[in-house]
C-alpha cells in the first residue's frame, strides 16, 4: 500500500481567474479512508479555501455527491482504495451550475420537487384522534422503494437528458411523485398528472437507465418513470374507449 495518494481537484473561484482548473494535492493514504476523508485532510491541513458540502458521513443526508473519476458517487461512501495508485480526479456533479469548487447549485431541483406535490393529497383529511389510516405491509411495499430517495442528486448527474434539456423534471422528483401516487393513503395522482404528463415530465426521458445504476439507495427512478409512461398510456386509451373519463 502506498503512503500517499494524489487527488486532482476541480477548482472554480468565481471571483478570480474565471475558468476552472484542476489542482493536485497529495494526501496520506489509509485503507479505511473514503474520498471525503481525503478532502477533509486537504481542507484542514493544506488549503482552507477548498469548498464542498458534507454532513452525516454515513450515506444518508445526501450532501456529498461528487464526480470521482467520472462517476457520480457519495464521497463519504467511496473508498480511496479502488482508485489506487491514483491520481483520483474529483469534480462537482455534472449537470448542475457550479457555484464554487465542488459545490453545485441545487435550487432547480428544489423547485421541481415542489412542482410534483410530494405530499399526501386527500379530499377529506382525517384528524389524528380518528386513528391511523390502515395500510398493510403489501400496500406499503408498493411505494416503499421510491420513498428511499435521499435527494443526493446522483441520478440527475448521471442523466444526459437533464444535462441536454435542463427543463426535464428529472429522475428523483418523478420517483418521489410516484412514491405518493402509489401510496394507498393518497388521492392526488390526478393533480400530479398535470406536471408529470407534460413534455418536460416523463416524456423527456428516453430511458438511458443510468439514474437507477448510480442510485446509492436502490430507488430505481428509471423504473418509476417507465411505469408511469405505461400507466399514462393505458389511461389515455381507456379514456378514449370510455367517454366522459379524462386521462
Amino acid at each position: 500500500m502506498p503512503d500517499t495518494v494524489k487527488l486532482e481537484v476541480f477548482r472554480y473561484r468565481p471571483e478570480g481567474e474565471g475558468e476552472p482548473l484542476y489542482e493536485t494535492f497529495e494526501v496520506p493514504y489509509r485503507d479505511e479512508w473514503m474520498v471525503l476523508d481525503a478532502l477533509n485532510q486537504i481542507k484542514d491541513h493544506q488549503d482552507g479555501t477548498l469548498s464542498y458540502r458534507w454532513a452525516c458521513r454515513m450515506g444518508v443526508c445526501g450532501s456529498c455527491g461528487m464526480t470521482v473519476n467520472g462517476e457520480p458517487v457519495l464521497t463519504c461512501a467511496t473508498y480511496l482504495e479502488p482508485f489506487l495508485p491514483g491520481p483520483i480526479r474529483v469534480e462537482p456533479l455534472h449537470g448542475f451550475p457550479v457555484i464554487r469548487d465542488l459545490v453545485g447549485d441545487l435550487e432547480d431541483f428544489v423547485g421541481k420537487l415542489q412542482r410534483v406535490k410530494p405530499w399526501i393529497i386527500r379530499e377529506e383529511e382525517r384528524s389524528p384522534s380518528e386513528g391511523e389510516y390502515l395500510q398493510t405491509p403489501e400496500e406499503m411495499d408498493a411505494y416503499k422503494r421510491y420513498s428511499m430517495c435521499i435527494n443526493c442528486m446522483l441520478c440527475y448527474a448521471a442523466c444526459p437528458i437533464y444535462e441536454l434539456e435542463p427543463g426535464f423534471i428529472g429522475p428523483a422528483a418523478i420517483a418521489l411523485a410516484q412514491r405518493y401516487n402509489l401510496d394507498s393513503r393518497d388521492e392526488g395522482a390526478r393533480e400530479r398528472h398535470e406536471v408529470l404528463a407534460e413534455h418536460e415530465g416523463v416524456w423527456s426521458c428516453t430511458f438511458v437507465g443510468e439514474c437507477s445504476i448510480v442510485c446509492p439507495k436502490d430507488v430505481d427512478p428509471a423504473g418509476a418513470i417507465q411505469r408511469y409512461k405505461v400507466d399514462a398510456t393505458l389511461d389515455f386509451f381507456r379514456s378514449l374507449v370510455t367517454p366522459g373519463r379524462s386521462p
Binding site: P14, E15, V98, P160, V208
Partner: peptide, 19 residues
C-alpha cells in the same frame, strides 16, 4: 455568484460505455 456551467460536448455519449 457567477455560476460556471459546463457545455455538453457533441460526443458526450462516448464519455461512458453505458451512454
Amino acid at each position: 455568484p457567477r455560476w460556471y456551467r459546463r457545455h455538453m460536448p457533441i460526443f458526450w455519449w462516448l464519455r461512458k460505455f453505458a451512454y
